[in-house]
């Protein structure tokens, strides 16, 4: 057993952080800076991070779930308002289905509550859909189909808009086995967990900085135990989520698909609960400011709300964990 990151993985993490530091959000007003967003998108496109799960000659992904999680975490930390989750999951669907590459930007279509991939014809939304020209849907029989995307993006998550999927002709691009579908679920749960871990850390960093500056009663508020203990608990939540994430990320390619889903579901349940707590702590520590639109706290919270709902938050994933130990349908 040796679960250290490789030197290449450390470099990858560093390079995502560098791009984020240069072009990421540092204030809510930056969301409106289209030039910045376009340059960030360009940098991400040039980096090939969206093609980590593209197939090599043998059909295996270019990079493992660990690399994909490293990128997702760093982008979540920096509130990157560029597509990554959607395109990566679309790429993985095409790889597993042995389909040809998409001609333009693509993302995935989920059921209205985001809990699973949508079938063609049912009400569905394309997530992380900025710039996406098409969206992939999966029929119950494993048929993978592509639909052209049009319509106005709307957003709970201010960094990643969703678009309702039009009832349009679906073009079959391939098909997935049940094992493929499980493998994809494991990746989707792992990437959303990584996104949650990154966003949680970003929210904590924001709150710690504020607690070290804001003064009341003549003292910086971080010196009060009532505030300090909230932030200490946030550290513990994040560390736990990170530990579960690492195993899930490794498991995406190293475990059999059903074990990989269980590992990822376990990590997702842990991270979803933790993210809510940490982001709410961030708002609380900021006091009134934390409840204002101008504070980044709600941008972190909103990002975690989307990441939580994609393939399910606490409830559906606790159910997956129980199913894996022989207790199906009990939650």
């Amino acid at each position: 057993m040796d679960v250290r990151f490789t030197p290449e993985q450390r470099i990858l993490r560093q390079s995502v952080k560098q791009v984020i530091n240069r072009l990421g959000l540092s204030a809510v007003a930056d969301l409106a800076d289209e030039q910045r967003a376009a340059r960030l998108d360009e940098a991400v496109e040039e980096s090939d991070w969206r093609r980590l799960r593209a197939p090599d000659e043998a059909g295996n992904p270019w990079a493992s779930g660990v690399e994909a999680a490293i990128v997702a975490e760093a982008l979540g930390h920096g509130l990157a308002d560029v597509p990554f989750l959607g395109p990566t999951l679309a790429m993985e669907l095409r790889r597993l289905a042995k389909a040809s590459a998409a001609t333009g930007r693509e993302t995935v279509g989920l059921r209205r509550n985001l809990s699973a991939l949508a079938s063609p014809g049912e009400p569905a939304v394309a997530i992380d859909a900025a710039c996406a020209e098409s969206v992939l849907l999966l029929a119950a029989d494993g048929t993978l189909a592509s639909v052209k995307l049009r319509g106005q993006p709307a957003a709970t998550d201010l960094t990643r808009p969703s678009v309702p999927i039009p009832t349009a002709e679906a073009v079959t691009v391939g098909s997935l086995t049940e094992a493929d579908r499980q493998r994809w679920i494991a990746l989707a749960l792992t990437l959303t967990t990584a996104d949650l871990v990154g966003s949680m850390q970003g929210a904590l960093d924001l709150a710690v900085t504020y607690a070290g500056q804001r003064a009341q009663y003549g003292k910086r508020i971080g010196s009060f135990q009532a505030v300090a203990h909230l932030l200490a608990d946030a550290v513990v939540h994040i560390e736990g989520a990170r530990a579960a994430l690492l195993y899930a990320a490794w498991g995406v390619d190293a475990l059999d698909p059903w074990d990989a889903v269980a590992a990822a579901a376990s990590a997702k349940a842990y991270a979803a609960r933790a993210a809510r707590s940490v982001c709410e702590t961030c708002i609380q520590v900021h006091g009134g400011i934390g409840n204002s639109w101008e504070c980044l706290a709600h941008v972190y919270l909103r990002r975690t709300l989307l990441a939580t709902d994609v393939l399910g938050g606490v409830g559906p994933n606790l159910a997956r964990v129980l199913e894996h130990v022989g207790l199906k349908g009990r939650l």
Binding site: Q225, A228, L231
Partner: peptide, 15 residues
């Protein structure tokens, strides 16, 4: 433990 985390991990000010 929370006091230790607050001061030594997060570097929050001491009261």
């Amino acid at each position: 433990q929370r006091n230790l985390i607050a001061h030594r991990v997060l570097g929050l000010p001491r009261s």
